[in-house]
Computed example of a mutant assay.
Amino acid sequence: MADEDRTRTDSGAGDASAKHRPGAAASGQTRTASRRVARARQRRRWAVEGVAALACLAALISYLGIRSDPAPDDDQAARPDGVTGVAARSPGFPATDGRTADAGVAEPGLRPRQRPPSPDPTPSATAPAPPPPAQQPPVLSVTRAEMPAEVNLTAVGTRDWMHWGQRGANSSVRKRAGSGEIVDEGGAGTRVAWDGNQEHVRWSDGSSQRSARDSADGVYTCGAGNGFSLSVAGSGEPRTVQLYGGTWMARGRLEARLSTGGPASSAVLEDPYTSKSAQFTVTFTVPKGARLLLTWKVEKVFTPHCGNVGLQAVAVR
């Protein structure tokens, strides 16, 4: 027990002596100084970072101020000496003394030239459609001439032709592939075939009879008021009709009129003593769907023995 108490006493004395050794005090001062130095360095770092932040903020504000400045006018240009100035303008602004102001020099009292307001857009209007071509007014005329000794119906009737009496009183021959514009409407009196006409006709494009040469055939009807009625279709274009007919001891009248109405036109063929032939030319224009109406009839007879009018052919071109 005495040994243990001695040992404890010695150990406590050792600890007390250790605390008061000079080396231990120096070590504690060093740690305190290190902490002060660290804190000083931290404050300097914060100060440097603050200054850097303020410098960045100032640079940003300066940059934004430059970007927000208005761009230079389009009329400014670089001068040859490198200095930016006002580009030359076209002359024409009057100066205060009546002279023309120099380009790019502002004159006192002048107001900026005002640009006239743009006109309101005019609504585009659709151009009116051109009027349809005016249709030819109705035309009608009848003339008479001597009938040629021979008539070529193929050459004369380029659109259509028709011949009567080739095979009897009720027979007729038409142009093959013709327009069909000629229509036999009949007529008063009895038709009689006749093969003794002095003038002859020919053709080479017939329908029921392909061709004929030197045909003297035709038809006739006797008595005042009797005759033939024909019609020719119109198309709105001028048409010419040739009618080949004759009389025997009678006065015949060819009367032409239009189905649309209006004045008629006529021509007379007369011989009290013998037979006579003629070529009647009818010129007309009527709208499509309208017709030329022809009546070739006995107006007066000079003999009780069948004064008559005769018909050989009609052609259209």
Rank of each mutant, 00 (worst) to 15 (best):
G234Q: 00
D73K: 10
V282R: 06
P91L: 14
R291I: 06
V105A: 02
V105T: 02
R8A: 15
R35G: 15
Y273K: 04
L54K: 14
S211Q: 13
T190P: 05
D69E: 10
N170W: 10
M162W: 09
T96L: 06
S211W: 14
E146Q: 15
D102N: 12
Q114I: 08
G157A: 02
P263M: 04
V139Y: 14
T100N: 05
R144Q: 14
V156Q: 01
P94C: 04
R239L: 13
L293D: 14
R257D: 10
L254Q: 10
A38T: 13
P80Q: 07
L57V: 14
R239Y: 10
Q166C: 02
G187D: 04
D69L: 15
S215L: 05
R31T: 13
W296G: 02
A188T: 15
R99L: 07
L64W: 11
P116M: 02
P138L: 06
E185P: 01
A267L: 07
L292G: 06
G289R: 04
V37F: 12
S207Q: 15
G65P: 01
S275W: 11
A78Y: 11
G252L: 05
P130M: 08
A24Y: 10
A129K: 09
T154E: 00
S208C: 03
A256R: 12
S17Y: 00
G307Y: 02
V183Q: 14
P22D: 07
G310Y: 09
T295H: 11
I61R: 13
A125R: 13
D97W: 00
S265E: 13
S68T: 11
D3Q: 13
T9P: 06
P131S: 05
A106F: 03
A155L: 10
N226K: 11
G187S: 07
S229G: 14
L269N: 06
A155D: 11
P263A: 14
D75L: 12
L153V: 01
R174H: 03
G189E: 00
Q29L: 10
T190F: 00
Q29H: 12
V192S: 11
S204H: 03
P238E: 05
S204E: 01
A59T: 10
V48L: 04
K175F: 01
N152A: 01
V316H: 01
P22A: 12
P128I: 07
S171C: 04
A313R: 05
I61D: 11
L54W: 10
A95W: 01
Q312P: 15
V268Q: 06
S259I: 11
A88L: 12
A58G: 14
L292M: 06
G310P: 03
A177C: 08
A145K: 07
F93W: 01
A193M: 05
G189K: 02
D74Y: 09
V142A: 03
H20Q: 14
A134Y: 02
P112N: 06
